[in-house]
C-alpha cells in the first residue's frame, strides 16, 4: 500500500513538474497573471478606493465577498471545534490517561506576560487600524489580539483567563464580527447599492464615494478582527483543554 502510494505520488509529481515548463517564467512581469487583472489593480485601486495598500484594497473591496466568507470560515471552524469537543458533563474525564498537572506558578513567566500583553494588544489595534497603509489588517491584528489572550492563559491558567473573558462573551464576539461585516454589506444594500458596495455609504457619512470605500474597508476589517480574535482564543480553549475548559488535556 505504502509502495503503491509512493509510486503514484512520484509519478504524479514528476508529471506536474514536467508541466511547469509550459508555465510562464517565474518572476516574469509580462506573464498573464502579472499583467491582466494585476495591472488594473495596481493602476486603479488607489484612485478608486483611496487605499494605498493594494492587498487590503483587493481583499476588502474588490473581493470583499470572498473575505466575508473567509471570516465565516473562521467562525465556522470555531463553532465546529466547539460542537465536536466541548462538553459540560465531566463523566468521561477518567478516560484520559495523561493529564498534566500544572505545578505551582512561574513568577518570571507571569511578570513577563504582564509586561507584554498590554503592548501586544496596543500593537494589534495599530495593525488593524493601519492596515490600509502598511502590511496588516483585520486578520493579522485579530490573530495578535487572540495571541495576547492565549499568552495570558499560558502564563496564568485557563480559569483565571476565562473569568476575564467568558466563553459566552468569546462566542458573542465571534458572531458579532461576522455580523459587522455582513451588516455593512446589508446597509449598503439598503442604501440603494449592491451588497458590500461601500460607495453607497458616501451620502450617509457625508464623504466622497472614493473615501467611503476606505471607511467601509476599515469597518469590515474591524469586524474581521473581532471574529478572528475570538475564534483564535476559542480554538485554543477547546483544543488545549480537550473541551473541558479545564487545565491541560
Amino acid at each position: 500500500m505504502k509502495r503503491l502510494t509512493l509510486f503514484l505520488v512520484v509519478l504524479l509529481g514528476a508529471y506536474l513538474v514536467w508541466t511547469t515548463q509550459d508555465l510562464p517564467d517565474w518572476g516574469d512581469p509580462a506573464s498573464p497573471a502579472n499583467s491582466y487583472l494585476s495591472t488594473h489593480y495596481i493602476k486603479k485601486a488607489y484612485e478608486e478606493t483611496s487605499v494605498p495598500n493594494l492587498v487590503t484594497a483587493v481583499l476588502a473591496d474588490y473581493r470583499g465577498y470572498d473575505t466575508m466568507f473567509e471570516t465565516v470560515v473562521v467562525f465556522c471552524a470555531g463553532l465546529a471545534v466547539l460542537t465536536i469537543l466541548r462538553r459540560t458533563k465531566r463523566k468521561h474525564k477518567k478516560n484520559v490517561k495523561f493529564r498534566p498537572q500544572r505545578e505551582g506558578v512561574d513568577i518570571i513567566l507571569q511578570n513577563a506576560a504582564r509586561l507584554m500583553i498590554a503592548p501586544m494588544q496596543l500593537f494589534a489595534l495599530y495593525v488593524i487600524a493601519h492596515g490600509h497603509h502598511s502590511p496588516g489588517g483585520g486578520f493579522q491584528g485579530g490573530v495578535i489580539l487572540g495571541a495576547s489572550f492565549i499568552l495570558l492563559a499560558l502564563a496564568y491558567d485557563l480559569k483565571s483567563t476565562l473569568r476575564r473573558f467568558k466563553e459566552n462573551t468569546v462566542l458573542f464576539y465571534s458572531g458579532l464580527g461576522v455580523l459587522i461585516y455582513a451588516g455593512i454589506g446589508v446597509i449598503s444594500l439598503v442604501l440603494g447599492g449592491n451588497f458590500l458596495a461601500y460607495a453607497a455609504w458616501g451620502g450617509l457619512l457625508g464623504i466622497s464615494e472614493v473615501e467611503a470605500h476606505s471607511y467601509g474597508m476599515l469597518g469590515v476589517e474591524i469586524g474581521v478582527a473581532f471574529t478572528v480574535m475570538a475564534i483564535m482564543f476559542s480554538l485554543y480553549l477547546d483544543l488545549a483543554s480537550g473541551g473541558d475548559l479545564d487545565e491541560g488535556l
Binding site: 488594473h40 470583499g64 465577498y65 447599492g193 449592491n194 451588497f195 458590500l196 458596495a197 461601500y198 460607495a199
Partner: peptide
C-alpha cells in the same frame, strides 16, 4: 458584488 464590474 460591491458594485465592481466583473473581472475585477
Amino acid at each position: 458584488l460591491g458594485g465592481w464590474p466583473p473581472p475585477f
